[in-house]
């Protein structure tokens, strides 16, 4: 990977952070699941994907959608229920989707998108063009039978499926250790003979490196793979959930910020100047301002649309 990939990754992570911050500040923000803190996972994984691949994810879908290249204006429109969102404002944050852009999309039932992703992988396998399906899910999904059923079939049928667990260490308020027995969540893949590893999800380079290796494995017909990325979310579970973590823990998490971490590394390595870094932030802010303006200019759906496209 080159420095230009790193700068793209930095810009992609900044876009997520900036867009979510603009979203949170809005009166019509509503119920949202923010990705702030976890940007490196979606951005690192998306960097390993090709145009014909499909990315699926949990309801925490803003970073995955943006990382996959969806237009920030349309994403913002969808998030605030406007008709120019890719789902015409009907899906919202939990169900962002744009398959034509390689983003099959979100499904807000915990563990609910895993077997769907395996089905998408089955359809892609029939195409013989080496395309793959990738499913991002939280640590909460690892306690569900859906993961185990899906891994079993994916391994049996050698499906082109990369499972990515974005382990942010909490299911709402329940710490991961109180909910899940395995030492590492990637250990769950071993009994099925699925290639797996665990990486630091706060380091976009580590995520990207592992994602490239595992997507190569999946793409070349090696069967499914499992990537665990240990991350931290900076906000509470959702915009309507109480924060249960203490100030000290939150401050320690902030120290791991994937954006400042990459930026510092690039500055230190001489791949980025302070001036370029500032310019990058300015560009991202301008994109988000334009995205908000686009979304605001878009109408809400008419009530009759409640009956459209049923079935």
């Amino acid at each position: 990977m080159t420095a230009s990939n790193d700068i793209d990754a930095l810009a992609a992570m900044l876009l997520v952070r900036e867009l979510e911050s603009a979203l949170s500040a809005r009166e019509d923000c509503g119920f949202q699941l923010l990705s702030s803190g976890q940007e490196a996972v979606a951005v690192g994984v998306a960097a390993a994907l090709l145009a014909q691949d499909q990315l699926l994810c949990s309801g925490r879908s803003i970073a995955p959608a943006l990382a996959r290249g969806l237009d920030p204006g349309r994403v913002m429109a969808e998030l605030i229920g406007r008709a120019s969102g890719p789902c015409l404002g009907r899906g919202g944050r939990g169900h962002l989707s744009q398959p034509s852009a390689g983003f099959f999309g979100a499904h807000a039932v915990v563990a609910g998108n895993l077997s769907i992703a395996a089905g998408v992988a089955l359809a892609l396998q029939a195409r013989l063009d080496r395309s793959i399906a990738v499913c991002l899910f939280g640590d909460g999904a690892c306690g569900a039978g859906a993961l185990h059923e899906t891994m079993n079939i994916a391994a049996l049928w050698q499906l082109p499926l990369l499972l990515v667990c974005d382990n942010n260490l909490y299911s709402v308020s329940t710490p991961r250790a109180a909910a899940l027995a395995p030492q590492r969540l990637s250990d769950l893949a071993a009994p099925f003979g699925i290639k797996a590893c665990t990486v630091d999800g706060m380091d976009v380079r580590s995520v990207r490196g592992a994602a490239v290796a595992l997507t190569d494995h999946v793409r070349s017909g090696g069967g499914p793979a499992f990537l665990e990325c240990v991350s931290r979310r900076f906000a509470s579970h959702s915009t309507s959930a109480r924060e249960t973590r203490g100030q000290q823990e939150l401050a320690a998490d902030r120290e791991l910020d994937p954006i400042t971490r990459l930026e510092k590394a690039l500055l230190l390595e001489g791949a980025l100047s302070t001036q370029t870094a500032l310019g990058l932030r300015e560009q991202v802010r301008a994109r988000v301002t334009a995205a908000c303006a686009f979304a605001e200019a878009s109408p809400l759906p008419v009530p009759d649309e409640a009956f459209a496209d049923v079935g």
Binding site: P99, G119, V120, L122, A123, I153, W157
Partner: peptide, 23 residues
Amino acid sequence: VRDTPVAEAAMVGLGVGAAAAGL
């Protein structure tokens, strides 16, 4: 004509996902 394991949730989930993606 695919035999599946005894896993109704995944069977239907795969059927849904595959249909949604073009089968």
